[in-house]
């Protein structure tokens, strides 16, 4: 019998939710265990099989000097390295430190700042090592995770669309809440994959899958403002789970600049 491919799952700074997505595949989990050798997956097993690994799934962002070193070891041990989730693909919500003074953050949370070793930034895995595929979402969608795993196991490209959440609403037949009810929604600039659940539940998309292929953040910001959103609210929603993803970060910065200019003109 041919050797089973070795699967490893690695954790960096994260909430564990994306790797839990694999355990949430209740109907498929035992079949996955048959198809691959779970070679290194600490959340699930004590067993550790030495690399190299055929597929590594990497969750979390790089936030400590130790992790900035560790990721190179993971890359060297992995034939295919797939990053999963907003932390691994864009730095996650902990990238909010990138815009502020991390020392102040440490002093707010920890009584003894001298015990804490951390970097000033939270960065995506691809900022440190070459990545073969990035799967987005906070959290990732488990159907998409299975698709990516199956694709790499069979040596084909994963079928993951890079269009916006708007397309998913159309595909599901959800009436546009921004058009029909003027509910501010990040759907037009957000990467598809969740199944457009927020609009289905009568709330605007809050961008947890990060920017889509070619987002027009400036135009959507204007649409939010004209729907009655305060500029600070638009900046906040862009600066959440994918705060450091460039189109979102740039859009938030542009809006902040506009506010400063408007204040100066008003003065």
């Amino acid at each position: 019998m041919a050797r089973k491919p070795k699967l490893a799952v690695w954790k960096f700074a994260s909430c564990d939710g994306c790797q839990l997505s694999l355990l949430d595949c209740e109907d498929e989990l035992l079949a996955i265990g048959e198809a691959v050798e779970i070679a290194n997956f600490a959340e699930v097993s004590r067993a550790v099989v030495r690399g190299p690994y055929d597929i590594s799934l990497v969750e979390g962002s790089i936030t400590t000097p130790h992790d900035a070193e560790r990721i190179h070891g993971v890359r060297r041990a992995s034939k295919v390295l797939i990053t999963i989730g907003a932390c691994a693909t864009a730095g996650g919500i902990q990238a909010l430190r990138n815009f502020q003074d991390v020392k102040e953050f440490i002093s707010i949370v920890y009584a003894r700042p001298e015990y804490i070793r951390t970097l000033a930034t939270s960065t995506a895995i691809a900022d440190h090592v070459p990545v073969d595929f990035e799967l987005r979402g906070c959290p990732i969608n488990k159907r998409q995770l299975l698709e990516v795993l199956l694709a790499y196991l069979h040596g084909r490209r994963p079928l993951i669309h890079r269009h916006s959440v708007c397309m998913e609403c159309k595909l599901r037949g959800t009436v546009c809440i921004m058009v029909s009810r003027r509910v501010p929604c990040l759907g037009p600039i957000t990467h598809a994959g969740c199944g457009a659940i927020c609009p289905l539940y009568q709330r605007g998309c809050y961008g947890c899958f990060g920017p889509n292929e070619s987002p027009n953040v400036s135009s959507l910001s204007d649409a939010w403002l004209s729907a009655g959103a305060a500029p600070a609210e638009v900046v906040r929603v862009l600066q959440t789970f994918n705060a450091a993803a460039h189109p979102f970060a740039d859009g938030a910065a542009a809006l902040a600049t506009r506010r400063v200019n408007a204040t100066e003109q008003g003065a």
């Binding site: 919500i93 430190r97 440490i106 949370v109 804490i116 951390t118």
Partner: peptide
């Protein structure tokens, strides 16, 4: 790794 939730909740809605 520390993620500082209590710090970045400051200033959020």
């Amino acid at each position: 790794p520390p993620r500082f939730f209590e710090a970045f909740l400051r200033g959020r809605s």
